[in-house]
């Protein structure tokens, strides 16, 4: 690839694949060794008044943002045009919905981060990896909101769908367009790079609780019965954390 530096290759090709690798292997590791640590780690017991507003607003805002990323980044521009959505309509919709999500997330994250840092009972439960996660999240949120509000809503817009999105989808088809992302405005670049760091951090943080969203509760019978099973002895060298051999039922 001409005109692309080794550094750019590292950040826009190596880093994403590395992060994805850590994401996958890390989750397998965590699931096998540390289901006991796999929890949402709620602090509602310690503090409820701020959580009452912060947690729902933040989570619902995040769902909206995730939906927006799926539409904007995963779905190619040609598709939306093919089903008859003209560019101005798309642009208007993404700016308005994006801003709404941004407002929700800002309110939510300010309440939650403030609560975590300022309420002593909550702060006492915060671990190093929580702080790292929080900092990265704040970075991703800030660099995600700035272009949404100031470029797409108030400014004259930037068509990330022909640049950032092309590179992102290229990662999964094996031919990432490095030049497309490397020439995007810096705020998009920071957003994307920090997001990859979050993917790499994901399996080791409390973010794993996202994969446990208990949707099947809607269908299962109310009362769960289980019969007694023997617990296997801990595998040597795991200090009691369990390693289950694949295909060995118990």
């Amino acid at each position: 690839m001409n005109g692309v530096s080794a550094w750019q290759i590292f950040v826009w090709v190596a880093l994403p694949y590395l992060a994805l690798g850590i994401f996958v292997v890390g989750h397998i590791w965590r699931w096998r060794y540390d289901q006991f640590g796999w929890t949402s780690r709620s602090t509602q017991l310690q503090e409820r008044r701020l959580l009452k507003w912060g947690a729902p607003i933040f989570h619902y805002g995040t769902f909206a943002a995730i939906g927006g990323h799926v539409i904007g980044v995963l779905i190619p521009e040609t598709w939306t045009r093919a089903i008859g959505i003209p560019e101005p309509v798309y642009h208007w919709f993404s700016a308005a919905a994006g801003t709404l999500a941004a407002v929700l997330i800002i309110i939510g994250v300010v309440i939650l981060a403030g609560r975590r840092l300022l309420v002593p009972r909550v702060r006492a439960t915060t671990s190093t990896v929580d702080y790292v996660t929080l900092i990265l999240l704040l970075l991703v949120i800030a660099t995600g909101i700035v272009p949404t509000v100031f470029v797409n809503l108030l400014g004259h817009g930037y068509d990330y769908r022909t640049t950032v999105a092309l590179w992102f989808r290229g990662l999964f088809s094996g031919s990432p367009d490095v030049r497309a992302i490397a020439t995007a405005p810096i705020v998009y670049q920071v957003h994307a790079a920090a997001a990859w760091l979050i993917w790499a951090l994901w399996p080791f943080s409390r973010l794993v609780h996202a994969w446990s969203a208990p949707v099947w509760y809607l269908w299962r019978p109310y009362i769960v019965y289980r019969s007694r099973v023997a617990t296997p002895p801990a595998e040597p060298g795991t200090s009691g954390r369990r390693w289950r051999k694949i295909g060995v039922p118990y």
Binding site: P214, W216, Y225, R226, S227, R228
Partner: peptide, 9 residues
């Protein structure tokens, strides 16, 4: 919601 609680048969 997780089905983590159970009554032993």
């Amino acid at each position: 919601p997780s089905g983590a609680m159970y009554k032993r048969e």
